[in-house]
Nucleic acid binder design. Structure first.
Lengths: 229, 229
DNA sequence: GTTGGTTTTTAATGGATTTTGATGAGACAC
DNA sequence: GTGTCTCATCAAAATCCATTAAAAACCAAC
């Protein structure tokens, strides 16, 4: 389905942050944190989270204000936490763009279930998982498809795995060990021969010449790199 | 911007239904009602609501069961109501596909705010077609029916489950593990053979040739995908 | 209980992919 | 120049995968 979701927690109380961090991390989420509203907004722009957990009681600025500014540019789901349980508060937050409102103290199981519910409707990586383009070559990770000049290229499992791995880090060199470990497993990190053959097939199918590469560049003794157009 | 949303209320207590009907209608929503689970599911298929408000305490069938059957074919947001506030109940409902969970008694302002929040993320008139088309093939999730050239195709449970799963993500590769986990359960993720046989039967009934597929494409060693016409 | 239909096993086949082995070309150091 | 290292390519063998058929076990409805 999706890779691990990133969750940004904005809360000024360190012990609550720690509690949430541990709980969320134990479920496999990647957690980033902020202790104030301004820091939180900065992190939100930087870390591209898939979900925002926001405590309304912040020292530097009003939580509602943080929510409002966040919603200026993001549609990522927001779960608001608060000790204040007044109905007016809840209505204000929900109408201000929050997707859920949980009052402290809360059960961690319910909290995690609400996190799952919010992430379900907006799957992780939805933002970044657009198709990647490398000139005439398109690698669509969501659909597991590869197009060359608009025509679909039929790739085998290993071929696709190598290309996808390279495509995930455009322009970066991926070491042979990395590729071998991720695709063949940690027991085959020495078999760089496999890699050469698969890359050979890939280049053939993509009409790529190793001496004059359009797509896959070999970095001798190190690994391979996918050129970003 | 948005036209009036339609909200389906499933609750067996007439006075609560009346209360919700009046409150929701005063906000301009169109309200349809059902007093039992089976009636609710029928109304859900018929009335194409934009939001479902579901009370878990129903006389004829378990609320969780209603939720589960509804989620078989619809992604419309669901707000669950319940007097029982046990955390386990909430987790079960949220993981069963509910988007929010409100315990009675509740403040009507907060309830309406949560309704607004749910409708915001899935705007009214988004009235998603429950029937999906793939050229001559139609998969109607709401009625659990499959039509080929307008004629109904009789499918077994597993066959339908596999086809429906593929149809929910048109063009996308669904991995064998995914299909096996969702349909046979997490203990059978290794039995990819089952899958091949069911897909074989499906192709036979849909007059689909694996070497020249109209509908189901096999991605060797990975999974299957349903071609979107 | 019997019956009809469904799901699960079992088995056989052909095809495709992956692995293995062998060979040659280029780069670089000595 | 020679030897060594890495890379690329070709061809075969071995393995894995998909498809099909058919029998056995299972279930639900009657």
């Amino acid at each position: 389905m999706s890779q691990t979701a990133t969750i940004l927690v904005i809360d000024d109380e360190p012990q609550i942050r720690k509690f949430l961090r541990i709980s969320l991390a134990s479920q496999g989420y990647k957690v980033i944190e902020a202790g104030s509203g301004s820091e939180g907004l900065a992190q939100a722009a930087l870390g591209k989270p898939d979900l925002l957990v926001l405590d309304l009681g912040l020292p530097d600025m009003d939580g509602q204000q943080v929510l409002r500014e966040f919603r200026e540019w993001s549609t990522v789901p927001v779960l608001v936490l608060s000790v204040r349980a007044s109905e007016g508060q809840k209505v204000e937050a929900l109408d201000g763009g929050a997707n859920d409102y949980v009052t402290k103290p809360f059960g961690i199981q319910e909290f995690l279930a609400r996190v799952r519910a919010l992430l379900r409707q907006a799957p992780a990586g939805d933002a970044q998982e657009a198709a990647l383009n490398f000139g005439p070559l398109t690698v669509d990770l969501a659909y597991r498809r590869v197009l060359l000049d608009g025509a679909e290229v039929a790739l085998t499992r290993k071929e696709y795995a190598v290309l996808a791995q390279l495509a995930r880090h455009p322009g970066r060199v991926i070491t042979q060990q990395q590729l071998l470990k991720d695709i063949w497993g940690p027991t085959h990190t020495e078999d760089s021969h496999y890699l050469r053959i698969v890359v050979g097939h890939l280049r053939q199918k993509l009409a790529d010449d190793p001496t004059q590469p359009r797509f896959i560049v070999t970095e001798a003794g190190v690994g391979y790199r996918l050129l970003n157009a």
